[in-house]
């Protein structure tokens, strides 16, 4: 019946490794870009309901800066890079060298938004290219789109494709932290990778693990 029932623990382990490799490269890119140490958590792969997914990102009403892109190619899907607003502000300030930049209320400065979009582009690009190398699939990112809004409103967009088939999502979530930060509890950024339903089979097959037994 549903594709989710066919997923076994070995499949989840493979997805975890995908998250690990992808986000590892992205974290390195972020670290180079900002010249800072960036910590990465062990990826979390979960089968969650849509509501639970919102909770993973801090609750549907939590305001974040989200970069969204579609993955096109052999294994299509959606990808989000979600940052708390304060964190996004400080990254942007660092990148454009303007301490007065703020995401408190619009209109935001063009260059700041463009910088954030580029940040999302670089990070998701490095995530995807490592994923593409690992699976030998050709994957292309769309131009990233940026939104500063409620998590629920942002992420539900990436769930649309999936929601045609299921009420659950397989989320590959990797959290990033700035190293100097004392409060280890406070997760700074998230990568969410949401492969389209048909893509799971393709990913597993490319790695030599059949999906159907």
């Amino acid at each position: 019946m549903g594709f989710i029932e066919k997923i076994s623990s070995i499949h989840l382990d493979i997805l975890k490794e995908i998250g690990n490799i992808g986000a590892g490269h992205a974290a390195t890119a972020l670290s180079k870009l900002l010249n800072k140490k960036i910590d990465m958590k062990v990826p979390n792969v979960q089968i969650v309901s849509f509501d639970e997914m919102m909770n993973m990102a801090g609750g549907a009403e939590n305001v974040v800066a989200g970069v969204f892109l579609r993955i096109e190619g052999e294994a299509p899907g959606s990808m989000f890079f979600v940052l708390p607003v304060e964190q996004a502000t400080s990254f942007i300030r660092e990148m454009i060298g303007d301490e007065s930049f703020s995401l408190e209320s619009p209109p935001y400065s063009e260059i700041g938004l463009s910088a954030l979009q580029e940040l999302g582009n670089i990070l998701s690009g490095s995530y995807l290219s490592s994923l593409s190398d690992f699976t030998n699939l050709s994957l292309y990112p769309s131009v990233p789109a940026l939104s500063i809004d409620m998590v629920g409103a942002i992420i539900s967009y990436g769930l649309i494709e999936l929601s045609h088939v299921s009420d659950y999502a397989i989320v590959i979530d990797t959290a990033l932290n700035e190293d100097e930060d004392e409060s280890a509890e406070y997760v700074k950024g998230h990568f969410f990778l949401l492969p389209d339903p048909d893509s799971f089979q393709i990913i597993f097959k490319s790695l030599g693990v059949p999906h159907n037994d």
Partner: peptide
């Protein structure tokens, strides 16, 4: 009310849903 969910309400309660985007 969560995403892809519904419910009903009577006074004095109120009903809410969060984070409507394209929904």
């Amino acid at each position: 009310v969560g995403i892809a969910d519904m419910n009903i309400v009577k006074t004095p309660d109120i009903i809410r849903t969060s984070g409507l985007g394209s929904c």
